[in-house]
């Protein structure tokens, strides 16, 4: 009897998990650590270095949120997740935040009951071809053999693209990115297609990167961003506005180098003052200290700094800002006003 009551109680608490987790912020503060889901390893976006310290573009989001909430960018417990385990880990409460190059789609946002806190990288599917092929546009690829990972959306995007442009192709199915690289280098296919950021990272590892060119066409939309559980809007707000703070900081010229100086006293730009907490009480509105954004920016720099450090043109990955430039520079990166 007692046992069945116990199991019953367990089930009920299990079902009530969504409701009981309404206060992720309190849990994180009590724990003193942010449980952040990351990739098991993706060049530029998240990987442990030789000392086991996680680094990367997505990892920086975790660190910024930890800095905003706990004041300490190192107070993060990184949970490596795979493509299969990432959503369950978030839904079950094992992690508070998933920052793992996850595409924002309708069904993930609604059916899987997650909230995307914004977009930190606008990706899209592209092509890489050997320079000697003399191809300058994906539309010239008529009759080409294309290496493609099976069972992914890239496969469907590819079929759509070629059908829309009324040209033919021959797919060469491969299982993993690693296999695709080997096949492509061995000449088993004329072109390889996957996310453009992945192509850039792949190209960077080739012995002679200059012999390969990434074509200008991007044939799909892959907005990648951090996500949280549905139902805890306070926590979602914190993640959303931490990301926005990083983006706004770049727009207003707040960097990791000058953030402490700017936050010391109110300056001439009222938006910067509100952002850094020298004016107004924005921090209190989301349940954080008033210097939350200052800490988030100090953790790894503003959006532009994070980009340049991890995947920018001076890194081996060498991605141009492109769509990910600030809106003032013709990109899509845009933060709503801090007011």
């Amino acid at each position: 009897m007692k046992k069945s009551v116990l199991f019953g109680a367990l089930t009920v608490t299990g079902l009530a998990a969504g409701a009981a987790q309404a206060a992720t912020l309190d849990e994180v503060k009590e724990r003193g650590e942010l449980n952040c889901g990351v990739v098991t390893g993706l060049a530029g976006f998240g990987a442990p270095d030789a000392n086991g310290v996680w680094e990367g573009f997505d990892v920086s989001v975790c660190r910024a949120v930890a800095a905003a909430v706990l004041g300490d960018p190192t107070a993060v417990n990184f949970v490596p997740t795979t493509g299969q385990t990432r959503f369950t880990a978030l839904a079950s409460g094992e992690i508070d935040l998933l920052a793992r190059n996850t595409t924002w789609t309708f069904s993930r946002d609604t059916d899987l009951k997650f909230d995307f806190a914004g977009v930190n990288y606008y990706d899209g599917q592209g092509f890489i071809v050997p320079t000697e092929l003399g191809v300058s546009s994906a539309k010239d690829l008529d009759g080409a053999t294309v290496c493609i990972q099976t069972g992914t959306t890239t496969e469907l995007n590819l079929a759509d693209f070629f059908r829309n442009n009324n040209i033919s192709y021959e797919p060469v199915p491969v299982e993993t990115n690693a296999e695709a690289q080997q096949q492509y280098l061995a000449g088993a296919c004329d072109a390889y297609t996957t996310d453009a950021s992945g192509l850039a990272a792949t190209r960077a590892t080739f012995e002679n990167p200059a012999d390969h060119v990434i074509l200008p066409e991007i044939i799909s939309k892959e907005p990648l961003g951090p996500l949280v559980r549905h139902g805890d809007n306070e926590w979602g707000d914190i993640v959303r506005w931490t990301l926005n703070a990083l983006i706004a900081a770049e727009e207003y010229g707040v960097t990791s180098a000058n953030v402490n100086e700017l936050a010391a006293a109110p300056g001439t730009n009222p938006e910067v003052n509100r952002l850094l907490g020298t004016e107004g009480e924005l921090g209190a509105m989301i349940g954080l200290e008033n210097d939350w954004a200052k800490n988030a920016i100090a953790a790894g720099g503003n959006y532009g700094e994070i980009f340049e450090k991890n995947i920018g043109e001076n890194t081996p990955i060498g991605l141009a800002r492109g769509l990910n430039a600030q809106w003032t520079n013709g990109g899509l990166i845009y933060a709503p006003p801090f007011r």
């Binding site: 098991t40 390893g41 060049a43 990987a47 442990p48 949970v79 385990t85 880990a89 590892t205 890194t315």
Partner: peptide, 20 residues
């Protein structure tokens, strides 16, 4: 998502130094 030797080899490959 546990980092056994195979998992770590992926993670090591994901660092910019040892990619490829």
């Amino acid at each position: 998502g546990l980092l056994d030797p195979i998992g770590l080899s992926n993670a090591i490959r994901a660092s910019t130094e040892w990619n490829g």
